[in-house]
């Protein structure tokens, strides 16, 4: 079995982003105009990173659909070589919760602050039941000694759905350009 089929059997998100696809200028999605959809997507992303940076991680799983969600942090190096191994890979909301419980109750790690910067939010495809959205992220890390460094830079590849009047992540794939981890990765990105 080839490793590329390993990969495609896993993810619903297309990997053909060498040429950026783009949604049409005008569309309506669940009654929202293109502009309003863009604004709602950006608000979702802003709330998502605020949840992590403000250490409200108990609420982090709520950003995902209850059934069949997928969250993954994977390095660009692994992706480009067709290797499926991730740094974090959850395919149930229970797993998302387990990550947070583990972080709170079990894991020992030096306290540090994270600061996410998200930009270049691009709706790449619009379907009846979902949006495909790419954006860029940088995570700054401030250690206890007060020094700030770049912990990870990369791209969010999200599949966003409309559920009970809200936008949720059905799938969030964090593809990190950074593939040399500084000591450990405990928080979601």
């Amino acid at each position: 079995m080839s490793s590329s089929s390993l990969l495609s059997s896993q993810s619903a998100i297309s990997h053909k982003d060498k040429v950026a696809a783009l949604a049409p200028d005008n569309f309506t999605w669940h009654g929202y105009s293109a502009l309003e959809t863009q604004w709602r997507v950006e608000r979702l992303l802003s709330r998502y990173v605020a949840c992590i940076d403000d250490d409200a991680l108990e609420h982090w799983p709520e950003f995902f659909v209850a059934e069949g969600c997928r969250y993954e942090i994977i390095t660009r190096e692994n992706v480009e070589r067709g290797m499926p191994l991730a740094l974090v890979f959850c395919n149930s909301q229970g797993m998302l919760v387990d990550r947070i419980v583990s972080l709170r109750e079990a894991n020992i790690y030096p306290q540090r602050w994270y600061r996410h910067i998200v930009s270049n939010v691009l709706i790449q495809a619009v379907a009846e039941d979902h949006l495909e959205v790419h954006s860029h992220y940088v995570v700054l890390q401030t250690r206890r000694n007060g020094q700030t460094s770049i912990f990870s830079a990369g791209k969010y590849k999200d599949r966003i759905v409309f559920q009970n009047g809200e936008l949720k992540f059905a799938e969030k794939r964090v593809v990190g350009d950074t593939h040399s981890i500084d000591t450990l990765l405990v928080s979601p990105i």
């Binding site: 740094l87 593939h179 000591t183």
Partner: peptide, 11 residues
Amino acid sequence: KLLGYQKVRYD
């Protein structure tokens, strides 16, 4: 069969 890497720098 290789699945992939996690690369880390430890101080």
